[in-house]
């Protein structure tokens, strides 16, 4: 597996794009795997009772799914040394069908001395940003 090197990277380079879909089953699977059993992620009645538009995806599922393209690009998931996001908008997941997310990773900074690159993720659903300030620091 070839891995990217710092000297081949420039700010603005696109490291990858990906389309991710979440159906209700994906939310149940994430609830089980993460232990986050908050009913807003699987119970429509509960979600609307607390003022949400309906069942929404776990923010941590969106965050977890968005970083995959960076792990795959880096060639080693252990190369991710820092990852932060702001949850700007909930992702409603319909009873049938799925929510679709578009993820793009762009080089935001290269630090040759530290041996790191910052990849900025743009994550949208229905044309709206669902994550803000989404930055992944990768050691290459």
């Amino acid at each position: 597996m070839t891995r990217p090197t710092l000297d081949g990277l420039a700010v603005g380079d696109v490291v990858g794009t990906r389309t991710v879909t979440f159906g209700r089953q994906d939310l149940v699977r994430y609830a089980g795997a993460s232990g986050d059993l908050n009913p807003i992620h699987w119970n429509e009645r509960f979600a609307t009772d607390v003022g949400l538009p309906g069942v929404i995806a776990h923010g941590m599922l969106t965050m977890g799914a968005a970083v995959n393209l960076v792990c795959d690009w880096a060639g080693d998931p252990g190369a991710v040394v820092d990852y932060g996001v702001r949850f700007t908008r909930p992702v409603p997941v319909p009873d049938s069908g799925a929510a679709t997310l578009e993820v793009t990773g762009t080089v935001g900074a290269v630090d040759a001395e530290a041996g790191t690159v910052r990849v900025d993720l743009t994550v949208t659903s229905g044309g709206e940003k669902v994550l803000g300030r989404s930055q992944v620091l990768v050691r290459l």
């Binding site: 089980g32 977890g64 970083v67 995959n68 792990c71």
Partner: peptide, 29 residues
């Protein structure tokens, strides 16, 4: 699987060891 992370280092201990890890690597989150 739940976050859709398909990199072999999450699933295959040998693939993880080839990258210098002692066992399968957890996804960043």
């Amino acid at each position: 699987r739940a976050v859709g992370a398909t990199h072999p280092a999450h699933h295959d201990a040998d693939a993880a060891r080839a990258l210098g890890h002692p066992d399968v690597v957890a996804p960043p989150t």
